[in-house]
Design a protein around this nucleic acid. Structure first.
Lengths: 143, 143
DNA sequence: CTAGTTGTAACAGTTAATGTTACTTCATGG
DNA sequence: CCATGAAGTAACATTAACTGTTACAACTAG
């Protein structure tokens, strides 16, 4: 069950809010979003909290409370969402420091770090090429 | 502790075997490799077992047993290693099927799958551009 | 036959994602 | 002023994966 669906859920939630607002509603509740995502409202509130920290969403409390977008769908890329909800790198180096007496153990760290840096750049470029507006357009096109 | 270091360890092990053979030894033991990686020999045997299934390494049993490369370092790319030891995709879709009555819930799956497919291609291209020979050369260059 | 190494099962510890319950905090509308 | 509804958040259970470890069976060169 534990594949990494945080990016998927975050994109889903933001896109849902964007469409809901575009249809004339002011705020979306975590309950409504959770119904569409098919999960628990607390899961949505936690994720949207991270997106709010990143400046992508905003929340109002009290009666008539809920969530809004802080930016237009067209100005939010998947890279923005990725940075907001995915903390670490994709690949990790050694759990324990390898043997520094060994040539390979001594030198492999920086070499692999350079490779992983290149991968990170490639992934980020790929994510930066799609906005939430693109996502919503493709969703509506398929409907 | 649980970042994904399987690719790092696998590359380390194969490169170590390659250098060891290049220095005139026939076989490398999981004990020796584990010392360089700074982990338990069973961890190495498990990973090398997957690499053997992928046709990258071979093992001999009995006395004087150990591991050898099935292919030259220059013919093994990081993508070959990645395919051998990393089963799934980087990002996952929804844990539970989203609401099919909702436009977003109904249409977001294929859209995100297309995005993730593009990322997978980019990562694979990046990994395919480096061979274990490149890795060993960079390690020796830095020494 | 012995010794050394692989092959593998079994288990513990750690981390992370996900889901759930329960409660507090807050602001709006009556 | 108060009742209501929703966010904020703590706490916990479950599941899964990675890593590490012990133990032992299987195997083969000498």
């Amino acid at each position: 069950m534990s594949a990494n669906s945080r990016l998927t859920i975050a994109v889903h939630a933001l896109t849902w809010i964007g469409l809901y607002q575009r249809r004339g509603h002011e705020v979306a509740t975590s309950e409504q979003i959770a119904t569409s995502v098919n999960t628990n409202p607390v899961v949505i509130r936690r994720l949207l909290g991270e997106l709010r920290n990143a400046g992508l969403a905003a929340s109002r409390r009290g009666a008539g409370a809920g969530w809004t977008l802080s930016r237009d769908l067209a100005s939010i890329t998947l890279l923005d969402v990725y940075d907001a909800v995915e903390p670490g790198l994709i690949f990790g180096l050694h759990p324990s420091v390898p043997d520094p007496e060994c040539v390979v153990g001594h030198g492999i760290g920086p070499v692999m770090a350079a490779v992983y840096n290149g991968i990170d750049i490639a992934v980020r470029e790929e994510l930066a090429g799609t906005t939430l507006e693109d996502v919503l357009r493709d969703i509506l096109k398929a409907a």
